[in-house]
Design a protein around this nucleic acid. Sequence first.
DNA 1: ATAATAGTGTCTTTCAGACAGTATAGT
DNA 2: ACTATACTGTCTGAAAGACACTATTAT
Lengths: 300, 300
Amino acid sequence: MSKINNQGITEEQFLKQYNADKYPQPSVTVDLVIFTATSEEKINQRKLPSKELQILLIERGDHPFMGSLALPGGFVNVGENIEAAAYRELKEETNIDNIYMEQLYTWGEVNRDPRTRVISVSYMALVDSSILNIQAGDDAARAALFSVKDTVIKEEKINTEEGHIFSSWVRIDLSNEEEKYSAIVKKTKTVQGRTTRTDYQVEESEGIAFDHAKIILYSLERLRNKAEYTDIAFSLVPELFTLSELQKVYEVVLGKELLAPAFRKKISHMVIETNEKEKDVPRRPSTLYKFNQGWTKNGF
Amino acid sequence: MSKINNQGITEEQFLKQYNADKYPQPSVTVDLVIFTATSEEKINQRKLPSKELQILLIERGDHPFMGSLALPGGFVNVGENIEAAAYRELKEETNIDNIYMEQLYTWGEVNRDPRTRVISVSYMALVDSSILNIQAGDDAARAALFSVKDTVIKEEKINTEEGHIFSSWVRIDLSNEEEKYSAIVKKTKTVQGRTTRTDYQVEESEGIAFDHAKIILYSLERLRNKAEYTDIAFSLVPELFTLSELQKVYEVVLGKELLAPAFRKKISHMVIETNEKEKDVPRRPSTLYKFNQGWTKNGF
DNA sequence: ATAATAGTGTCTTTCAGACAGTATAGT
DNA sequence: ACTATACTGTCTGAAAGACACTATTAT
């Protein structure tokens, strides 16, 4: 290409004289929401343990938000692909490589970080609890799993001339054997004509750093949504699993109870029966299944 | 907060001494995929015109990719929210404020821009063609609508030990009365165990700048997907519309023909009949409908 | 009358939801 | 035998797809 622009400069010359530092640039980070589903303690030997949804959080050892919980993450290097940065952080925190991860959303409000202008690209990762092995972080940070729960505590609808504004306040609870934190996120859905806009705002936060409470809420919604129409929930279960176990995972993700026959019919295309069975259980042992990679209709 | 970190510094002191310029930072841009559905020329007076899906593109007036087509967009200022930057660009290009827009994906490969490290946050906007009014850009850029078509030209499946790799090559065609451009994007879906990863790669590009061909493909897939289970397609139609018109929009978005009775049943909850009818048409005039804002089940 | 689309009624098939009932392990 | 879960069969009702049929306008 030897085209010349209206200043009489060729492409090579243009690129040579280009100066990226003309303007100040925002910093870019990745933040990871790493989900697992673990079994609760068996209270009754006979009863099947139910599942809990948990996420990996880090107790911050430095300013800002020192002592608060934050999502694992860090700055993206100038010479590093964003996705590579996300995988790097995942590896650092959990020592896992090859798990389900998807980009969620990019948070770009000007004042989300008190240090400087920081844009955060968030990712959601799903790990089966048998693999998860939290790394002992450096002394500045302690990582731990926390159970997540989201509860709608208030809803409000205001009718406007051309539509309405629907607000709901969601409390995010993060708890451990030792600790308990929570935040309230206001979610506003503005319908005006045919346009809908959704906005998340952290209203109160006890011990949850930055705007991470809203990132957690967003990821919960995405996980729930995708669990309805994709095979995403299989990533939360070990390689061999029973259908009851899978059902319990679906129940905790979707936040509702399911009927076994309907559930079995629905997922029957996505699983393959193995010859193995559960062992040493005080009841009829259930068959172990594995994921059927080829279940999808598209892709011959 | 008067906590002191392990260097004996309080939060105020920490923030005061924080230097964001320690490391070089990437530049951040927003790129917009602005869709419209327009009627094709009426060849036959009697026949109903079919719809075409179009996107707004800019012919670049400067290096790099001078003369190529690019998505409208620009750099995000350090003091500007990302979303605000997207709305600003939309306004500059189309003079429209209040339309449907959603964040799509953030593209973070290191070498996507020859100038410097540029991370692009892409947005999808939907405009009804009766409103769209392209602004005369500055002399460095010409904006115009181009019809989009995506065609799968080749598919391939390779079985691996723990799964398979499914690749498809998609040709993106952008055309106008005057011009015609195209690119080939390779889409790779890697299934390994329970993990699926999808990757997009521009293989050939005739006159489409940067990696914008893959952003366009990604947005087409998202639009199609969302049209199936949301009311997103209503944004491509004027405030008052006939059901046939709406159906034609769905057909062009989904890329397949629909049966009228099934279609009417499906969208009946989302529309409200008005008293008005089409005028001056050489056939039975159809009733005009408007969008029913309150159709959604959630939100009381 | 004719061309062309607007719009309705109804049949079939598919699938989710509900529930009753049978099977099988350990204790 | 009993308990708790594993697993299956079948009914019902809602929704999607297919098709035939009627309605209404300008020319």
